[in-house]
Structure formats: C-alpha cells, structure tokens
C-alpha cells in the first residue's frame, strides 16, 4: 500500500506537469486550429532562460524565474504568433504545422549551439525534504509540483469561465466570425491564447526541469507525451488535456512498478491507439463536425 501511494503520487506529480504542456496543444488548437509540434521545445526553452538569468546576468532565482516567464511570453507567445502563425495561417493549417516542426528543430539546435549539448543542473523550486504518510515516503517536491500545477489549472479554468476576457476567448475559439460580430476583439483574444500557452509552457518547464535536468533535447519526449495526453484526453477540451496528462503520468509509474519496466514507454501509445479506435474525440473531448 505504501509503495502504491508513493508511486501514485509521483505519477500524479509528473502527470500534472505533462497536463500543463498538454493544455498548450488545446489552446493553440482552439486559437489557430493547428497543432504546435514545437510545444515540447516550448517547455524545454524557458529553463534555459532561467539559467541565463542566474548564471549570466547574476539574478537571484526568484527574479530569474520572472525573467524567464516574461521572456517566454514574448518569444514563445508574441513572436511565435507574429512571426510564424500570422504569416503562415492564410496558407492553411498544414503549412503552419510543418512550420512548427521546423521551429522545433530550430529551437532545439539553437539551444544546443548556444548553451551546449550537455545537461545542466537546474535549481529546484521546493525543498528536497520528505515526509511519511501511511508508511510511504512522500517527497515535498512531488506534492508541491502537483499542488502548483493544479492551482494553475484551476486558475486558468476560472479565468476562462468566470471573466469577461475568458468568455470572449472561448467565444473566439468556438466561432471567430460570430464573436467578431458580437464585438469581440478576436485578434487580441487569439494573442491572449498564445501568451497563456507560453506562460503555461514556462511554468511546466520550471517545475519539470529539476527532474529532467535542463537539456536541449528534453522537448522531444515532453512534446510527444503532451501530444499523446492531449489526444487521449480530448484535443479540444482543457479538462481533457488535464485528464490525459494525469492518466499518462500515473499509468507510466504503475506499469513500471507492477507490470513491466521494459515496456513502460509503450503504454501511452497503446492507450492512444485504443482511444483513437473507440473514442476518437478523446476521453473528455467533444466531437467536431466539419464540411469537406
């Protein structure tokens, strides 16, 4: 029981960070009807912004985190929208998807050239203390990662459902034309979606880098898991991305502990195939019709 509790909590902790990255897929899908295949690199890069702040600019960690968050929102939110999404979107979704693939390579290789190929130690945000609960040794870092991630998700949900701006963003996502007729500044709402995506990616980066270590190639795995999580949960629903992220995090750990460590990486893919076959809109997603 103690082992189960420990593994479950670790899985929820990691899964909640996957969920933050997965929400990014949902937001970009709703804002631009495209898939951002550079999402993994969006989670990889902010950790390096923080390291630049700490090591190159001599900032204390708290200031470097704010610096990293703001820089992420500018580079991965504003510039991504202005320089890549807006010029490419009129050409259709597919060219934009390919452009995000190119961006993924650019960010990865650029980070490698700029900061080196080696993994870098990354400062933990929470104390490395442990506590005992029901015989299980629980890490404070795991608990805090889970709580912070859930707080971010709850905050985002409240923002989208309870504020005027949030509802305008939802209206823009559901029907940009109708929203515009109703007086919503749809361009601004789309920009907000990209900025929130960048901020979520940055927060996911800050939480997961103490575990993953800061490395240029981190985005490959993170992007894939977040993509799978978003599809399993439901690509067009934030709650789906959360469910998908948590499910993968927990299943990965339970599989490695109780079934097989050798094939743990296959479990998300098996789940993905099963969901696509039996519930293609995702576990919590809604089906979308389209004229072709």
């Amino acid at each position: 029981m103690a082992q189960f509790l420990q593994v479950l909590l670790s899985g929820l902790s990691t899964g909640s960070i996957y969920a933050l990255a997965a929400i990014g897929f949902t937001l970009v899908w709703q804002a631009a009807q495209t898939v951002n295949f550079a999402q993994g690199e969006f989670v990889m890069l902010p950790a390096f912004f923080v390291l630049i702040g700490v090591h190159w600019l001599g900032m204390p960690l708290w200031l470097a985190l704010i610096f990293g968050l703001i820089l992420s929102m500018i580079v991965l939110g504003l510039l991504f929208k202005v320089l890549i999404v807006e010029p490419m979107l009129p050409n259709g979704g597919l060219p934009l998807i390919i452009a995000t693939m190119a961006l993924s390579i650019l960010l990865k290789e650029g980070t490698k050239q700029f900061y080196g190929a080696e993994a870098q130690p990354y400062p933990g945000l929470f104390p490395q203390a442990t506590m005992t609960l029901g015989g299980a040794v629980i890490s404070v870092q795991d608990v805090m990662n889970l709580l912070v991630s859930l707080a971010i998700v709850v905050g985002l949900t409240l923002f989208l459902n309870r504020t005027r701006t949030g509802r305008c963003m939802q209206a823009t996502a559901q029907s940009p034309a109708v929203a515009e007729i109703l007086g919503v500044n749809t361009r601004r709402m789309v920009l907000y979606a990209f900025l929130i995506n960048a901020a979520l990616a940055a927060l996911a980066s800050f939480l997961i880098s103490p575990i993953y270590l800061a490395k240029f190639s981190n985005g490959e795995n993170l992007g894939l898991i977040a993509f799978i999580a978003a599809i399993i949960g439901g690509f067009n629903q934030i709650r789906g991305a959360i469910a998908g992220g948590l499910l993968i995090g927990v299943l990965d750990n339970l599989t490695a502990t109780y079934i097989t460590a050798e094939y743990r990486a296959a479990i998300p893919l098996i789940l993905l195939i099963a969901v696509i076959l039996w519930k293609p809109e995702g576990l919590l997603g809604t089906s979308e019709g389209r004229n072709v």
């Binding site: 593994v7 670790s10 575990i211 750990n253 599989t255 490695a256 502990t257 050798e262």
Partner: peptide, 19 residues
C-alpha cells in the same frame, strides 16, 4: 530494474528497489 536510455522519471524504479 531496467530503464530506457534518456529516461527522466525514476520514481517507479527506486520504489521497486525499496520494496
């Protein structure tokens, strides 16, 4: 306990060893 090259999360691995 085998693990994959590039594996990031070792919580299950350590948990199995402890148990």
């Amino acid at each position: 306990v085998p693990s994959e090259q590039g594996q990031a999360d070792f919580s299950a691995d350590v948990s199995k060893i402890k148990a």
